[in-house]
Design a protein around this nucleic acid. Structure first.
Lengths: 186, 186, 186, 186
DNA sequence: AATGAATGAGAGTTCATTCAT
DNA sequence: CATGAATGAACTCTCATTCAT
C-alpha cells in the first residue's frame, strides 16, 4: 500500500492559495490547482471530499495560522502599552510576511458561503482571555469584546490591504498604534 | 419605451446583486442572472459588453451609492460629536438597509480582478474635505487620512458583517460611536 | 431568435438509441451521443434537462410507438381468431421492422431506475378495452388482464429477442399464434 | 485462511448484485462495490481480471442458480399437471426469494455486451430433456422447444417483474398455471 | 432592441485500473 | 494476499458568449 504523500497535500494547498490570490475564487479551478501542484485532478479528491471542503479546510487552517502568530507575539507580562503595540504590530507583520495567506483569508472571509464554515472563536479565545485579564487589572478600558476586536483588528487589516495608500507605512502603523493606546488604555 | 428598457437593466442589476449575495460570486452565472431578471441571456449583452464589465459597472455604482448615502447624512454645520456619530451611524444604517448591496460591495472589494476597476477616491473626496475642515477648526484631531478612514469605517463595516456576534447591536453601535468620539475629538 | 431544429432533436434520439443498442446503457455517454448526432454536447441540454430525463423521454416515446403500431393493426370487427393473430403478429412485426427501438425498449425496461418512469397503462388502454369487449361477447375467455398481457406479449417478445434460436421463424410464429388461439378462444 | 478469502469474494459478489439492483448497471462502480463489500478496490482485481469479467462471471453463476433451483423442484415421476405447476411455481418462487439475483440476471440479460458471454443452453438442457420425455409419453403436447420455453418462462418472468400490477399474486399465479396446463397438456 | 438556440471550452467529479508497500 | 494512494480518461453538466431571426 502506498502511503500518503503529505508533501503532495502541501503543494495542493499552496497551489490553491496562489491561484485564488492571482485570479480570484473563480479562477481557481480544480484542474488548474492540480496542474500547478503537479498532481492529477483525481488526486485532489484523495485528500479532500470536494472543492468546497478543500476551500474551507485550507481557509480554516490559514485563519488559524494568523491567530497563532499573534498569540506567539504577546505575553501576559507585557505592559498595557506594549500589549496593544504587540497585538497590532504582529497582526500587521503577519499580513506582511504572509501576504498570500492574509489576502487569501480576507478574500474568503467576504464570501458568504465560506465564512460560515469557520469558527473564529476557538482561535481568538487565548487573545481575549488575555485582554480580559488586562481589563480586570484596570489597564485596558472595558468595552464589549466585539468592539475591542473591531477597533484592534479591522483597522490594521484595512491598513495591510491598502498599504499603497500610505506614504510611510511604518509611520502610519506607529500612528495607528498610538491611537489605539490612547483609546484603550486608562 | 424607454421605461421598459430601463426596467430591464434594473432587473438585471438586482438579479445579479441578489445572486452574488446568496450564492457568492461563483453562483452568479449569466444564465442564472438572466432567468432571475426574466430576460434572455442574450439581452444582457445588449446592455453590457461582457460579464466582467457588468460586474465592475454595477460594483462601481453600488460603491458610489454607499458614499452618497453617507454624504447625505452629514452636514458641515454639525458639531464634531454629531459629525462622527453621523458618519458611523450612516455607514451602519446603509449596510443594514441595503444588506444586499453592502455584502455585494464587500465581496467584490476583496476580489483582486474587480477591486482594480474601482476608484474609491472620487467618491470619498467630499467626506474627507469635510473631515479636513473639522481638523483645521481644531475640532477633530489631526491624524493621517488613511488612519482616520481606517478607524472610522473599518470597525463599523466589521460590525455590520458580524452583527450576529453582538447581543445588542444598538448598544454596540452607541459604544463604538462614543469610542470614536473619544479618540478623534479634542 | 433562432428557432428549434427538430431535425436536431431527432438526430439526438436516434444517436442515443443506436448507442445504447450497440454498447449498452453504459456506453451511451452524452459526449458520444452528441458526436453521433453531430451536435455539441451542450446542445443536448437545450432539448433535455439532463441525461436521465432524456433517456426516460425517449424510452416513453419508443414504448408508445410500439403500442401505436399494434393499435393500428387491430380492428373491432375482426373475428376472435383474427384478433389474436393480429395482436401477436403486429407485435412481432414491430419488433422486426423496428429492431433498434424494440431492443432499446426491452433494455430500458429491465433497468429499475428507468422502468419506473414509464406508464404503460395509458398506451395499452385501447388494446385492453378491445380485449374486454371480446370477453364480454364470449369470444375470448376471461382471464385477469395481467395474465392475458403476460401470455399475449411476453412470449412474442421472447421470440423476437431469440429469433436466432428458431429454425423457421415464420413457422414458429404461426405455431405460437395457434397456441394462443387455443388458449384464449372459446 | 481460505474461509477468509472466500468471504471476501462472496461479499464482493453480493455487493455488486445489490448495487446493480438498486442503482442499475451504471450505479455499480468498482469503487462503490468495494466500499459496500468492505474491501479495497484493488482487492477486487485479485479475484477478477477486470470489471467486465467480474460481471459476466457473477452473471453466469446467478443464471445457473436459477436453473438449478428449478431443476431441484421438478421430478420425472410427477404427473403432467404437477410438472407444469412445479416449473412455473419454482420459477416464480426463485424470483421471489432471490429478488436481487433475479433482477440482476434480467438486467444483465438485456445488456448486449453481457448477454453474449452466457450460454443458456447448458443449464436448461436437463429441463428440456424432461419435457421431451413427457412429450414422448403423450402427456405434453409437442410444440417447438423455443415456443414451449417462450410460454413457460416468459409469462412467469413478466409476472415476477410486474408483481405490483396483480391484486392477488397467488391467485394470479394459480390462474397462469391452470392456463398453461390447459395449453400444454393433452 | 430582444430573444431562444447553439456552442466550444471548461467546470467539478468519478471512472476502471495500476502502483508501491 | 491485500491495500490505500494515485491517475489519465472520461463522465455529466454549466459556462460566457454568439448566432440567426
Amino acid at each position: 500500500m502506498r502511503t500518503r504523500d503529505y508533501d503532495k497535500q502541501e503543494r495542493i494547498k499552496e497551489a490553491m492559495i496562489d491561484l485564488i490570490l492571482k485570479e480570484g475564487i473563480n479562477g481557481a479551478s480544480v484542474a488548474k490547482i492540480a496542474k500547478k501542484a503537479n498532481v492529477s485532478p483525481a488526486t485532489i479528491y484523495v485528500y479532500y471530499e470536494n472543492k468546497d471542503e478543500m476551500l474551507s479546510e485550507v481557509f480554516n487552517e490559514c485563519a488559524h495560522r494568523s491567530y497563532s502568530y499573534i498569540q506567539e507575539c504577546i505575553d501576559p507580562k507585557m505592559s498595557g502599552k506594549m500589549f496593544i503595540e504587540a497585538l497590532i504590530r504582529s497582526a500587521y507583520e503577519f499580513a506582511l510576511k504572509n501576504e498570500e495567506i492574509f489576502s487569501f483569508v480576507e478574500q474568503c472571509s467576504s464570501c458568504p458561503t465560506l465564512s460560515e464554515s469557520v469558527s473564529h472563536s476557538d482561535y481568538s479565545k487565548y487573545v481575549f482571555d488575555l485582554i480580559h485579564e488586562y481589563q480586570r487589572k484596570k489597564i485596558l478600558k472595558t468595552y464589549s469584546d466585539t468592539n475591542v476586536a473591531a477597533v484592534l483588528f479591522a483597522p490594521v487589516k484595512f491598513m495591510a490591504m491598502n498599504r499603497t495608500a500610505y506614504k510611510d507605512t511604518e509611520e502610519g502603523l506607529a500612528e495607528l498604534i498610538s491611537m489605539m493606546q490612547d483609546l484603550l488604555l486608562y
